[in-house]
């Protein structure tokens, strides 16, 4: 019984991390129709930059902001000089961004080496919390759940309740129409892609503090994010949230109950979902 609850919390905290990564991916697809497979590499690089900053300054907040900011700069350059040249050719985008991820991964390996590195967590987030019923749980992962929920709330308000969100939603539905009404859609693209990059870099720092950072982590986390996006439906913020919860919980219980087949537990139901709803739970026609 206790394990069941602990696994549920494990799943939800992993879901919070996945949401950070998947929400950026899904938003940039929704608005710009860009499939950015370098998102996992952004995560890893952001994590490494945050790690270095945390070691230099000793501040976790600086690490999170710095990791995110570094990726914003990188993401802007990549968008501006590489991805934009592919137009709306998804095949080209996938190849290009996979290549980019190889480059980032290899350069990161040369700089930070091949060991598992852990972003240091500030003292007030270490240790365990006691939950009702005498269950102890790592404080950090517990706080992560609230952090994920906070980010979701901020994104949701931004997306659903503000004028800029309304313009972005309009852009998702019909880009040409928005452009024709005199809105600078380019600036919107830069902002959305900046936000997505920031979320990915930040996720790297946050995730690096409990999953550790190592070569290959970029692909592992990317696949989880992709599955979240497939389940939730490309371009849907709510879908990313629901998808993250489903994937996080399936993964936690899969690892616990069937360790050798945890990937199967995770992907099997998704294959089934695909049969009935190929566009995901919240997806629309693109």
């Amino acid at each position: 019984m206790t394990s069941t609850i602990l696994q549920a919390i494990n799943g939800v905290s992993f879901a919070a991390l996945l949401f950070l990564l998947a929400s950026g991916f899904t938003l940039s697809f929704g608005l710009m129709r860009v499939v950015n497979m370098a998102h996992g590499a952004y995560y890893l690089l952001g994590g490494y930059v945050g790690l270095t900053l945390a070691e230099q300054t000793g501040s976790f907040a600086v690490a999170i902001l710095g990791g995110g900011a570094a990726i914003v700069v990188l993401g802007y350059l990549v968008d501006r000089f590489l991805i934009r040249r592919t137009g709306e050719n998804h095949l080209a985008q996938v190849l290009l961004t996979v290549g980019l991820a190889f480059v980032i991964g290899d350069v990161a390996l040369a700089i930070w080496g091949g060991d598992n590195l852990k972003v240091p967590v500030p003292p007030f987030l270490r240790g365990a919390v006691e939950l009702p019923g005498g269950v102890y749980y790592p404080k950090y992962r517990f706080v992560l759940i609230f952090f994920g929920a906070l980010v979701f709330a901020v994104l949701w308000i931004l997306y659903r309740k503000t004028q800029i969100g309304a313009v972005v939603r309009a852009g998702v539905d019909d880009r040409e129409q928005v452009s024709a009404t005199g809105i600078n859609i380019d600036r919107l693209f830069v902002m959305t892609s900046g936000l997505a990059s920031f979320l990915a870099g930040m996720a790297g720092v946050v995730g690096g503090a409990f999953l550790t950072l190592y070569p290959g982590a970029e692909w592992e986390i990317l696949v989880f994010a992709l599955v979240v996006v497939i389940v939730g439906g490309l371009g849907s913020l709510e879908g990313a949230m629901v998808g993250a919860l489903i994937v996080g919980l399936l993964d936690a219980y899969g690892r616990w109950l069937l360790p050798e087949f945890s990937y199967f537990v995770l992907f099997g139901p998704i294959a089934l979902l695909m049969l009935f709803r190929p566009r995901g739970l919240f997806g629309t026609e693109h």
């Binding site: 190849l95 996979v98 290549g99 980019l100 190889f102 480059v103 980032i104 991964g105």
Partner: peptide
């Protein structure tokens, strides 16, 4: 691996 990535791009 980075060189392969550049070939992709």
């Amino acid at each position: 691996a980075a060189v392969m990535g550049v070939v992709f791009i």
